[in-house]
Design a protein around this nucleic acid. Sequence first.
DNA 1: ATCTATTCCTGGCTGC
DNA 2: TGCAGCCAGGAATAGA
Length: 263
Amino acid sequence: MPELPEVETVVRSIAPHLAGRTIERAEFYSKRVTRGSHAQTAKRLAGRIIQRVRRRGKQIFVDLDHGVLYIHLGMTGKLLWNAAPGKYTRALLELDNGTLVYDDVRQFGRVEFFEALPKLLERVGPDALGIDFADFYARLQKHRGAIKAVLLNQSFVAGVGNIYADEMLFASGIHPRAQARRISKARAQKLHNNLLAVLQAAIQHRGSSISDYVDSAGERGSFQNLHAVYGRAGKPCLECGSPIRRIVIAQRGTHYCARCQRA
DNA sequence: ATCTATTCCTGGCTGC
DNA sequence: TGCAGCCAGGAATAGA
């Protein structure tokens, strides 16, 4: 499940192949993944020159000389460089130097061409790696819901998903059900530090590969081996030994240590 | 406005 | 070996 570290890893691995290249041909195979007219989208992409590939939160933007290709990996999206198209290939870009293949088993992802970005996509908050503490703390005050749910809200901060939300709450000693606005300034400072620290550590390990995730070269990440709580329900807490608990918050599996994380 | 529940989607897993 | 039933969750959407 690609979150900020996985998307960052994909962007880093794909960008050198794409920058400055020309799109010769585009193909789309899924009505779900690409909602616009396939023929029209392909026509608009043909001949476009890629200027750069960038990321905001979990969103990927391929800036073109005219318009932008928006890519969201959803749950199982993969951007693969020079891979053979397969059963789950939903879109494909043939460039002058190779082929970019978009595979997505569950089709929660998106590959769309826009002349200009829709307002909906602009609704996301500041990127998790770029937000300063003052802004982070001010935004926390605006939410009365559980901190876990708030961290997952992309308009609060962009890029955090289920795995890293659990990990940074554990690292900060904050209970996932704690009310966002009730978190003390000192705790919030800790959470802000861990927001950066956890995501940066995950990027250094090229992301977490639980089931599907691989980068554009098909390589798995290794950060899943360093998860303290995610996916460790019933196993002993690495800090205190008490069993990691699993509850559901905002319809998402949430893992925490009842002893290390107090409300 | 803010928050919560529902929906989409399919491979993988469990249990009979 | 087969198969029904459930689970995983990002984010748009609808409803409270």
